[in-house]
Design a protein around this nucleic acid. Structure first.
Lengths: 349, 349
DNA sequence: CTGTTAGCGCATTCAG
DNA sequence: CTGAATGCGCTAACAG
C-alpha cells in the first residue's frame, strides 16, 4: 500500500524557495539571525510563517553533531530535595532553546554509569550529575565527554568539570555544633537511605561529637530504607529504646525530623525542654510546625539554576572560562525545636 | 584551531565489517533481534562489544522519522502532586527504551500550546498532557498528532486519545459530604492557585452545599498564589475574619490543610471538636500529624505508571486497541481532624 | 532471514 | 554577507 502523505513535510528548501534565497540562509536566519542581512531575514521570516515551517530536530542533530538536550542524572525522584533543584533548573532554562532530560538511577552507581553512556550517545548539550561518587568508569566517561559537565549538590576537590553545591560534612558538623551550643549533651543521629551525601553529614556529626568526647555509637540509628515522615517516628522510637537518655537528635533530613518531632509530641516529650531536634534541608513546612523545626537551609533551588546557567554559558562562550567551582553554602536556622535557652543564645551572639 | 578527532566515531558500517555482515543486519540485531538468525546475532553482538559501538540517536530519528522520547507537559514543578506522578512514570519506564522529557508550562495554556508544538516537531514516541483545558489550537494539534496522546489527572468525556485520572468534581463533592456527615454545618473552602482541577473540586464542594442550602459565599477563600503550608495558615486567618462561625473546611490540597491545622492549633482551636479539616491528596505526612489529617487519597503514582504503560503498549501493538479510558478513582480517608463522632459514623456504615 | 539502494533534513565546509 | 556541494549515520522499502 502506498502511503498517502496528507501533508508533505515542509523543509528548509521549501522555505528557501518561497523566500527566494538558499536553504543555508534560512538555516542561518533561524540559528543566528545576526549573520543575515535584515532584508533576507524579513523575507525568510515571512516564508517561515506562511508555510508553517518547523525545524527538524533530528536532522539538525545529525548534521551538527549536537542537540539541545541537557541531560540530568539524579539518584531519586522521591527525594523532596530534587524537586527544588528541578524547579531551579526549569526556571533558569526558560527562554533558552535547551530542554532537560532526566535520568533516574535509583542510587545505583552502575545504573548511573549506564545512563551516562546512554546520554552521551545523544550528543547532549550538557550533562548534570549529582555528587562525586561516580564509578571509575563513569568518571572517565565524563572526563572524556565533549560537552560541559556539572556535578551538583556537593562541593569538594577534584571535579570533573564544573561543580556546584556545598559541603555536607561541614553542614552536618554545623548542625551538631548548634545542638551542643544549645546545651544538649547526649545527641543522637537519625538517618535513612544513607546515600553518600548523608554519609558525609553523619561524618561531620561524628567528628563534632568525637572532638568533644561525647560520641556514642548506639545513638546513631540508620536504615537503608527511603526517608519518610513515618520512618522518622519509627527511628525515634528505636533510638529511645537503645539510648533512652538521649536529649537531642540531628536528623538526616526534615522528613525524618518532622516524623520524630510529631512522635515525640505523641509521647508527651517536651520539645525543646526535654529533647532538641535539628533537621536538614529546611522544607517549607518546617517553620510552620509547633514548635518550629530547627533545620539546615540548603541552596537547592539556586544549585539547579546555577547548574543550568553554567552549561548555557559554556555553550554560548564555547570556552572553558564558563567553568564554575561554586560553594553555595548552607545555613543553620534555629527554631523552637532546639532553642533551649534563648537569652543565653542572644547574649552569645 | 583545528579539532583533533581523538577517536573516530564507530558506525554501523564498522560493526558490519567487523562482523562480516551488512549494516542493516546490525541495525536489526539491535532493534529487533528476533528477526535475525542466532548465528548472525552472535557475530554482531561480539563486534558491537569489541568496537564499543553506540548507536546514534539523531541519525536513527532522522531515518525512521521517530524518537524514543515521551514528552510530558505539566503545569508546575512546585506541586507535590506531580512528583508522585513522575515517580510512577519513571518506575514504569524502567527497562523500556523510552525516555521522558518534561515541559513545564507554568499554568499558562499558551505556553502549553507552544510546548506541544515544540514537542510534536521532535516526533515523540508519545505525549502526556495534564488535564482537559488545552486551548482550541492545542487540542487540534494533539488530535492531528501521529503519536499516542494521554491526558492525565482528570477523567471526563471527550478525550483526545487516552485519558487516565479521576473526577475532581466528584472528589470535591465526596470530601464535602464527609464533613457534612460528621455533623459540621458551616463549612468553608480554602483554595490556592485555583487551576482548572481545583476549580472543579470547588464546584463539587459548592454543589454539595447548595443542594443542602448551606452554601455561603464568604466561606470560600481563595488566592491565585501557589499553595504552601504557610499560605494555608494565612487563608485560615482570613476565613476566620470573614466568617468566624465557620466550623469546618475543605482545603484544596494537603499543604493548605496542614497549614490551617497548625494555625488552628496555635490559636487554641480544638480539632476536630471545634473545627473539622479535610485536605486533598493525602500526602505521606498527613496521617502522621496530631491529630491525623482527613484527606482525599488520589492515585497519583498509578496515574503516572498507567500513562507510560498506555503509551508503551500503543507503540508495541501499533494499534488503537491500546487506547485507555481509565477512571482510577479516589478515596476519602477519615482521620482525627474531622471525625467528630466516631460512634455515629460506625453506626451509619 | 539477509542485502541493496536511496534518501531522511539539515549544517559544515569553503568559495564567492 | 550568501550560496553550492557534500555527507552526517541510520533505516524504509524493496528484492533476493
Amino acid at each position: 500500500m502506498k502511503k498517502i502523505k496528507t501533508k508533505q513535510k515542509i523543509t528548509l528548501v521549501d522555505v528557501a524557495k518561497e523566500a527566494g534565497v538558499s536553504a543555508i540562509t534560512v538555516s542561518r536566519t533561524i540559528r543566528s539571525p545576526h549573520m543575515v542581512s535584515p532584508k533576507a531575514r524579513e523575507k525568510v521570516e515571512a516564508a517561515v510563517d506562511a508555510l508553517g515551517y518547523v525545524p527538524d530536530a533530528a536532522a539538525s542533530a545529525l548534521a551538527s553533531n549536537r542537540t539541545d538536550v541537557i541531560g540530568l542524572l539524579i539518584p531519586s525522584l522521591t527525594n523532596s530535595v530534587f524537586a527544588e533543584v528541578l524547579r531551579g533548573m526549569y526556571d533558569e532554562i526558560e527562554g533558552t532553546p535547551y530542554s532537560i532530560q532526566i535520568g533516574n538511577y535509583r542510587y545505583s552507581p552502575l545504573t548511573e554509569e549506564k545512563l551516562i553512556r546512554t546520554f552521551l550517545c545523544q550528543k547532549p548539550a550538557g550533562l548534570i550529575v549529582a555528587g562525586l561518587d561516580q564509578t571509575e568508569t563513569s568518571r572517565k566517561l565524563l572526563m572524556e565527554a565533549s560537552c560541559p559537565i556539572v556535578q551538583i549538590m556537593e562541593f569538594d576537590k577534584g571535579p570533573v568539570d564544573s561543580m556546584i553545591g556545598f559541603s555536607h560534612f561541614e553542614a552536618g558538623a554545623a548542625a551538631t555544633r548548634h545542638l551542643i551550643e544549645q546545651g544538649y549533651e547526649r545527641i543522637g543521629f537519625l538517618g535513612a537511605r544513607m546515600d553518600p551525601r548523608s554519609q558525609r553529614r553523619l561524618a561531620g556529626f561524628r567528628q563534632e561529637l568525637k572532638s568533644r568526647g561525647s560520641l556514642s555509637a548506639e545513638r546513631t540509628v540508620t536504615t537503608p530504607e527511603a526517608s519518610s515522615v513515618g520512618l522518622g517516628a519509627e527511628l525515634l522510637r528505636e533510638l529511645l529504646v537503645r539510648a533512652p537518655d538521649t536529649d537531642a537528635i540531628f536528623c538526616n533530613n526534615d522528613d525524618l525530623a518532622i516524623g520524630a518531632l510529631l512522635e515525640a509530641q505523641r509521647r508527651g516529650i517536651r520539645i525543646p525542654e526535654d529533647f532538641g531536634i535539628c533537621g536538614f534541608n529546611d522544607l517549607e513546612i518546617s517553620k510552620q510546625l509547633n514548635p518550629g523545626l530547627t533545620s539546615v537551609a540548603t541552596p537547592r533551588y539556586r544549585i539547579g539554576g546555577a547548574a543550568i546557567k553554567t552549561i548555557v554559558r559554556s555553550l554560548e562562550t564555547d570556552s572553558v572560562t564558563a567553568r564554575k567551582r561554586l560553594d553555595l553554602g548552607f545555613e543553620v536556622i534555629p527554631r523552637g525545636s532546639s532553642i533551649l535557652n534563648l537569652e543565653r543564645k542572644n547574649a552569645q551572639s
